[in-house]
């Protein structure tokens, strides 16, 4: 399978790899996927006020999954929570030129973003389903 240059770049030089303290109040963590399906993404955000000031990821998955989550962390930094919530998987597909068989990687990245934001909000005492 041929990978786009951007996928290769993120795979070879993944951005923002690592972990934040998941018990901290200002950190939201999203873990999505399943090992038996071949991909698990952990995405974390650190929030100040309404702005995401840091984002980290770790991904078990194919090159496209790694690239999707790496790209997501790049996009998240500096965004407001609402802007981050609005990130759509199709933007990731376009940016990385993912082929149809790899679209699920972008969906997973979008799910991870939403899961991290929801985790943060629930820590703040806001019900994510109301936002």
């Amino acid at each position: 399978m041929a990978y786009s240059d951007k996928v290769l770049d993120h795979y070879n030089n993944p951005r923002n790899v690592g972990s934040l303290d998941k018990s901290a109040d200002d950190v939201g963590t999203g873990v999505v996927g399943a090992p038996e399906c071949g991909d698990v993404m952990k995405l974390q955000i650190q929030v100040e006020g309404d702005t995401i000031v840091d984002a980290k990821f770790k991904t078990f998955g194919c090159g496209s999954a790694i690239a999707s989550s790496s790209l997501a962390t790049e996009w998240l930094k500096g965004r407001s929570l609402d802007d981050a919530m609005a990130i759509n998987n199709t933007e990731i597909v376009q940016e990385l030129s993912l082929p149809p068989v790899k679209i699920h990687c972008s969906v997973l990245a979008e799910d991870a973003i939403k899961a991290a934001i929801n985790d943060f909000k629930s820590k703040q005492g806001t019900d994510p389903s109301q936002t």
């Binding site: 972990s19 996927g33 399943a34 090992p35 399906c37 698990v40 952990k42 991904t59 078990f60 997973l108």
Partner: peptide
Amino acid sequence: LSPLYEMVQEGVDLSKIQWDAH
């Protein structure tokens, strides 16, 4: 890069986790 390896290093039993299979 692997969240699974990290969990195992932390002593988490992966088989006990409720994964959201897709």
